[in-house]
């Protein structure tokens, strides 16, 4: 093992730091490649766009990442985004309009509307955890089910369209206010706070350690006295809550609750999680990695759009980039493991 230099440093860091570092370097390299092709890529305005394009996926990605580290999927988040957006509008819409059914809500105060919306989201989280943690049904099945249920609620309340009238002025405040001196909304700040909380929870708390223990070997965790059911329940509640907050912020930004909002977000959140190095088998990964994953996707798709001027290609490019990145990651990790 006497080989100094890079090997020496690489030998001292954990696999997680190794992958995160590799992804960070990839992000920087991709960024500079993009700048070579598109001179304006490194402008402040564009960098702000790169972040603004992804904040909602990052917020969803936190819950999805922690569940995946514990060995569980959460495919319900996209549906919950739609449900939360529509509910937040429905609860505080005035109830006097005669224009149409969609313009009449419950006329509740804003604060109560938000609280009730989050409560409804926790309800979805509770259904997930009841079936998955308690009854031990496969998580992918249950959360695909609750994804439909949540979106269904949004569809019913909007008759398949949207609600956007007769809202109190306060409704759009958080979503439309920018961080002073930038083009980014304060939603980005909120996401930053949650990312920091997630990283602290993951790295510095017993709660965080339990996530890795359950994901690494659920059987051993149970025999070691870990309260697996309780932990998984809390993780699903958190994930639903984060999805609810995402939905509320998006509804606030657009001043509307769309029933089709958040379609496909569950896959986007899963993709950035995997890109960020979280193992689909559990036991390994990090929220920090997920943020990097999101930024990589952002750089790739906006470069592609900038070069081709054709946004419809972004799916193919996103897909190809994801394949390559995940294969490269697996290769790097396996090689490293077998060297140990």
């Amino acid at each position: 093992m006497k080989s100094g230099g890079m090997r020496g440093i690489a030998g001292k860091i954990s696999n997680e730091t190794y992958i995160n570092l590799a992804m960070l370097i990839s992000l920087v390299v991709l960024f500079f490649l993009a700048r070579l092709a598109l001179p304006k890529f490194a402008s402040i305005a564009n960098i702000q766009n790169l972040i603004s394009n992804q904040w909602y996926i990052i917020l969803l990605g936190i819950g999805v990442t922690h569940l995946l580290i514990a060995g569980y999927f959460d495919m319900s988040v996209g549906g919950v985004v739609a449900m939360a957006g529509v509910l937040s509008v429905f609860f505080c819409q005035g109830n006097t309009s005669t224009a149409s059914e969609l313009s009449r809500g419950l006329n509740l105060p804003y604060g109560i509307s938000i609280a009730l919306t989050l409560l409804a989201c926790l309800g979805i989280g509770a259904i997930n955890s009841f079936f998955i943690a308690k009854l031990k049904v496969a998580s992918i099945i249950i959360t695909l089910g609750t994804m439909s249920v949540a979106r269904g609620i949004a569809q019913i309340l909007t008759q398949g369209a949207q609600r956007n009238t007769d809202l109190p002025d306060v409704f759009t405040v958080i979503g439309k206010t920018s961080i002073p001196g930038t083009s980014m909304t304060i939603a980005v700040l909120i996401v930053a706070v949650f990312v920091i909380l997630a990283i602290v929870a993951e790295k510095k708390t017993v709660f965080g350690r339990r996530i890795y223990q359950i994901g690494a070997n659920q059987n051993a965790a149970r025999l070691s006295g870990v309260k697996v059911e309780r932990q998984v329940t809390i993780l699903y509640l958190i994930s639903a809550l984060l999805a609810g907050i995402t939905g509320i912020l998006l509804a606030s930004e657009f001043g509307a609750g769309y029933s089709s909002r958040g379609r496909g977000y569950e896959f986007d959140a899963l993709v950035i999680t995997l890109l960020g190095g979280t193992s689909i088998n559990g036991g390994f990964g990090s929220a920090f990695g997920t943020v990097i994953g999101a930024l990589i996707i952002s750089v790739i798709t906006s470069t592609a759009t900038g070069l081709l001027l054709r946004p419809e290609w972004q799916y193919i490019i996103k897909g190809a980039a994801t394949f390559i990145a995940i294969m490269a990651q697996r290769y790097a990790l396996e090689k490293r493991m077998s060297n140990g």
Binding site: S14, A216, N217, N219, A220, G283, F284
Partner: peptide
């Protein structure tokens, strides 16, 4: 390996 340890962890 399957009941006692977290082989992935340190």
């Amino acid at each position: 390996r399957t009941q006692g340890l977290f082989t992935l962890l340190t």
